[in-house]
């Protein structure tokens, strides 16, 4: 007996251009609970643009995105607030400490603040350090904490392991593996690391 998975993300025929530069030209794909969709392609092939469209941070010119979470269909606005997103364009308030940043976003997300300590411990990040003085590897760890704060079902990961040393890669990889027990992920530019549970591979043309 085949049950339909509780969470499923699918997108058909996405187009997006910037002025005269067409970045996405008819991209389609699908991923469901427990799976990873791996997105690869040359620089400028539209991997980050695709993830932004999936996150609801950008509207595709054409095409459909459909996301079902715990058997309810979410619209673009709900999807934006529901997903976890790790990407190089994610920054935090430099005047605030790591913990204050996460507390602020936890309050906005109306989610429990108890997870913050646990997450910071998992990625080994000092809570009192000001976000403006973080090294690039530490900033990447903070991005992971931000993405996992509200225990999202869907993780959208763009260059998720950039700048991380090997303990950092191990910590985030184990977070990802744990996430995939009940969730799903779309990963672009994972570097040389081998990803867990890759079910689909989408190759974008340059």
């Amino acid at each position: 007996m085949q049950e339909s998975p509780p969470c499923q993300l699918s997108f058909q025929n996405l187009y997006r251009s910037f002025g005269r530069l067409a970045v996405l030209r008819g991209v389609s794909g699908e991923v469901s609970t427990g799976q990873t969709l791996l997105v690869t392609g040359a620089n400028g092939s539209g991997k980050s643009t695709l993830l932004k469209c999936l996150a609801g941070l950008m509207v595709p010119d054409r095409g459909e995105i459909s996301y079902r979470q715990d058997n309810t269909q979410l619209d673009a606005r709900e999807r934006r607030l529901a997903i976890g997103y790790v990407a190089p364009d994610l920054s935090f308030y430099e005047e605030l400490t790591v913990e204050e940043n996460l507390l602020f976003f936890a309050r906005l997300r109306r989610t429990s603040e108890d997870r913050i300590g646990h997450l910071l411990e998992r990625v080994n990040l000092p809570p009192d350090r000001s976000a403006g003085t973080l090294s690039s590897g530490m900033l990447q760890r903070l991005r992971w904490c931000f993405a996992l704060l509200h225990q999202p079902r869907l993780l959208l990961l763009d260059e998720p392991f950039q700048n991380l040393d090997s303990p950092g890669q191990d910590a985030t990889r184990s977070l990802l593996e744990q996430h995939l027990d009940e969730g799903l992920a779309v990963t672009a530019n994972p570097g040389l690391l081998e990803l867990p549970h890759v079910a689909h591979h989408l190759q974008l043309a340059g």
Binding site: A55, L57, R80, L81, I83, Y85, A87, D89, L90, S91, F92, Y93, E94, F105, L108, R109, F146
Partner: peptide, 17 residues
């Protein structure tokens, strides 16, 4: 400019913000 808007867009209810 400091690119914190992305994190804010992903977390905040617009009217409350």
């Amino acid at each position: 400019e400091s690119r914190t808007a992305t994190a804010l867009r992903l977390s905040a209810t617009p009217s409350a913000l």
